[in-house]
Design a protein around this nucleic acid. Structure first.
Lengths: 359, 359
DNA sequence: CTGAAAGCGCTTACAG
DNA sequence: CTGAAAGCGCTTACAG
């Protein structure tokens, strides 16, 4: 049952119309080598017969699979749903399919995952790189979704600018002593976010940056952050690098008896699924995933088509001089600040001990 | 650059060895029609030459794409990462790829998504159905991931039994007045979870079930649940139907000044990404996704192979009498209770007003 | 504007 | 055990 074509093929249509299958092919693909009348007639017939082109046949002939591969460092990433959804839509709009592969947060597995995709003949690759990974030349165009500061060819949200937005929002609320909280100091994205925040702070803002993961690695717990103490020392806002981290902080503060945002404001990044529904809802910043996906997919398709070898039938392919991963342009897409109730005015009796590192 | 095979093909190997490509094919596929010596020699040569079979060629010839389609009602579903990851692994292990399609929580789009996948020639479909949807015959085997109570052919976690586990856990902690909180009363999964909990409660347990979504639809807010009031009336545990709902309740309670679990216990379902890291961490129940994925993929592959038409070359396919979606068996996989700090002993001074519906 | 022919790479009866 | 041949469905130079 599986497999074995059920519907008609090109020759069936050609037969039914008394024309050649070449003509049917040309008519259907709209390359314009067929008279308008014939095109219309063929299209009509194809519709009536319920013709569905065979991807396999086309793929074998053209050497293109019509499929893009999506590689994720860790599919468990809470942003993955948004990414996958956006990519699938962008691809489908361009008549491409999306094959997935996850790499379990492991460089070796990432290589495997890419290999599996390449073997399946994907025409291009979208990769959200594991931090620190450089994708070598893989034999097909690659678009990376990361940060503009990643060396290579990327489309991404403008994490830096988003950091600035968060920072300005907090400053406008009157916060002067702010704790910046990151998770992984090796992450480009997180560094950009923190960098943007720092850059936007004025001279009179006191801020300190903490990274959670190294602390945890050294056997510490989240408690080692001493949040309560810091707040009593004057911190009135905690700006984290992700909603997950913000949620962690928020619930910890609440458990410790603090009121958010009355006593402390908390911000996140990414607008994850839970962010709008928790109490208080998270002030955060959202990326326009579909825009990013559209750019990435468009860049890929451009390259798939544009860089085609001028003499496709020559047995010796001209050695490409441009690396496969070069995208037309490194694009950065602005993020959108979403103000919700986890941020509020700085408490009035704020005592700026200014014991943090000052910018 | 994209497309156009780069490596050697079967004939190249055949040529290099002075044998026929048929023999190379047979040797490589291990169908056993070739002498052991030759097989070894061919395999070696193929390895040396870096031979990678062309999926397109194979697909065209066999009518099989080697790809499974994964359809999700809403890719935004927080469980999606786990599902996708598990499916991809299970498929990859069996040398299948996974093509994704989301259906934006919309029945029409679900049909479109399935259509797109079918057009791409997937050999089988894994669908997490939108609630209430029945997938018609689509021309390829379908495995549904839902609950055993869904009419049709499903693999799933045993949500009912998981509900029982949660209920027993709460009873063991001494809770006697429990609020059951669902989101969507039309969801089979949620009804199973609630049903399981109710079934496990003993006579002396007072419990009431509330559904959030209908409330919200009627313009109510989460506040309409009157959680504080219910707690003061004796509710000592709130058992929700998902971690997302549990998180919502938890943060709301915390905001209202309640201590969890000292004053109220809260439970969820699914062990979402945030569940272990919030404070208090969520007691929940986890499904073994990879097991579910393995069963689904195995069932699909079985059907793809097993139900093959006995005479593949006959132009007239024998009409199948068995619907395509029948799976070998409806399987249910047990879920695992994960006890964390959001549940604790019932408060001592519990005053069971028993104003709820009693089982 | 239209058609005949070749060929993408593979697998599978079939014959030897 | 091995090979010659056909054919899956498509597209693309090429010739007319």
């Amino acid at each position: 049952m599986a497999g074995k074509r059920t519907g008609p093929n090109l020759s069936k249509i050609a037969e039914a119309l008394g024309v050649s299958s070449a003509t049917v092919s040309n008519a259907l693909s709209g390359k314009g080598r067929v008279s308008a009348d014939l095109v219309k007639k063929i299209r009509k017939k194809a519709g009536e017969m319920g013709y569905v082109p065979s991807r396999a046949g086309r793929a074998l002939r053209t050497g293109r699979s019509g499929v893009l591969g999506l590689v994720l460092p860790d599919i468990g990433n809470p942003l993955f749903p948004q990414i996958a959804q956006a990519m699938e839509r962008a691809a489908a709009t361009n008549d491409y399919g999306v094959l997935i592969a996850d790499s379990r947060d492991d460089v070796t597995t990432q290589t495997d995952a890419i290999g599996r995709l390449i073997e399946r003949g994907v025409d291009g690759l979208i990769v959200i790189p594991r931090r620190g990974t450089r994708i070598g030349t893989v034999g097909c165009p690659v678009a990376m979704i990361d940060t503009p500061s990643t060396p290579g060819n990327t489309v991404s949200a403008d994490h830096w600018q988003a950091g600035e937005q968060i920072a300005r929002h907090l400053m406008e609320l009157g916060h002067k002593n702010i704790l910046l909280l990151g998770n992984d100091p090796a992450s480009n994205v997180q560094n950009d976010r923190i960098g943007g925040m720092k850059a936007a702070f004025k001279r009179d803002i006191s801020c300190q940056t903490l990274w959670l993961q190294p602390l945890l690695r050294k056997g510490g717990t989240a408690a080692s952050l001493n949040l309560s103490e810091r707040i009593s020392q004057g911190v009135s806002a905690i700006a984290t690098v992700s909603d997950l981290l913000a949620l962690r902080v928020l619930t910890e503060l609440q458990t410790a008896g603090f009121q958010v945002p009355t006593q402390v404001s908390v911000t996140g990044f990414d607008d994850l699924i839970f962010s709008p529904v928790i109490s208080p809802a998270l002030t955060t910043v959202r990326m326009n995933m579909s825009q990013i996906a559209n750019i990435a997919v468009a860049a890929l398709i451009d390259e798939i088509n544009g860089n085609r070898d001028p003499k496709p039938k020559t047995s010796l392919q001209k050695k490409r001089t441009v690396p496969d991963t070069v995208m037309a342009d490194t694009s950065r897409v602005p993020m959108e600040l979403i103000i919700r109730s986890s941020t509020g005015p700085a408490p009035f009796d704020q005592t700026p001990h200014s014991n943090g590192e000052t910018l």
